[in-house]
């Protein structure tokens, strides 16, 4: 990883307030090719709010978001996705009544970008299905293709979130707490998987699971009360006095 390349994803001086609450205060961070950049911070620090502004669900009051050098600040979520932003949600947002395969095919359909076919069969379309099945296989859900999504365990839903993002073959992943509620073995498996994913596209990852963060992250940014108080390597962040005080706790 060299520091000379242009970042794949970048926020510049993003500010966002909810009435008196300053959820994002002058946030500038970037995501470079090949890296996993972890965003950590206490509950309510403004991590999901920042992710929403990057992905397009929320408009910043000021500042800008850039994807592959292009200013996408005013573009809707769907357009950013088509430009290569793959996102997973903190609370999974899947089509619960549909099967696992249908959710994955939906992702493939988004990637293909032609949803206005009224007569052919979605699941009968070989190319859509191939993309979907490959993605399910990569996250290990191939045996659950026909399961109704509502019947999946919490951890499996997280896997499906990642699989749907994979179908888009994004240029950058943005993941909001992919490990949340996974349990030890689940998060270990996903850690291994995300580790291999960074070669395909860099990942900006919000995560509370510190073992996972320390194992995966090339860089860590620490967000407290809407402000980035530090960005650096794992070693730097572990040694950072302000971070220890504000977030990891004195004894960390």
């Amino acid at each position: 990883m060299t520091d000379l390349q242009t970042p794949i994803l970048e926020t510049r001086n993003i500010c966002k307030s909810f009435d008196a609450l300053k959820a994002s205060q002058d946030i500038s961070l970037d995501l470079r090719a090949g890296e996993i950049h972890a965003l950590i911070g206490p509950n309510g620090a403004g991590k999901s709010t920042l992710i929403a502004q990057i992905a397009g669900g929320l408009k910043p009051d000021s500042g800008s978001v850039h994807l592959n050098g292009r200013d996408v600040t005013t573009l809707p979520t769907a357009k950013r996705a088509r430009l290569g932003l793959g996102r997973t949600f903190q609370v999974s947002a899947l089509a619960m009544e549909d099967t696992v395969l249908q959710n994955a095919v939906l992702g493939a359909l988004g990637a293909q970008g032609r949803p206005f076919h009224l007569f052919q069969s979605a699941l009968g379309n070989a190319s859509l299905r191939q993309v979907a099945e490959q993605a399910l296989e990569r996250v290990g859900l191939q045996d659950h293709a026909r399961t109704r999504t509502a019947e999946l365990s919490h951890g499996q839903r997280r896997q499906l979130e990642v699989a749907v993002a994979l179908t888009l073959q994004p240029k950058a992943f943005v993941m909001d707490e992919p490990m949340a509620g996974l349990g030890a073995s689940g998060s270990k498996a996903l850690t291994g998987f995300l580790d291999s994913l960074r070669e395909q596209a860099p990942i900006l990852m919000v995560e509370h699971d510190m073992d996972a963060v320390f194992a995966l992250a090339d860089r860590i940014s620490v967000l407290v009360y809407g402000q980035i108080i530090a960005t650096g390597s794992v070693a730097e962040i572990r040694a950072h006095p302000e971070v220890r005080r504000a977030y990891l706790g004195e004894d960390a």
């Binding site: 899947l94 549909d98 206005f116 979605a122």
Partner: peptide, 27 residues
């Protein structure tokens, strides 16, 4: 046929989770 078509799949998903449909690049 419509219900099983790509359009039907996307429309039905937009009913269940509009966020999801946007996130995969559809309106």
């Amino acid at each position: 046929r419509l219900a099983r078509s790509p359009f039907g799949l996307a429309l039905n998903a937009a009913r269940q989770s509009p966020q999801r449909v946007e996130t995969i690049g559809l309106s």
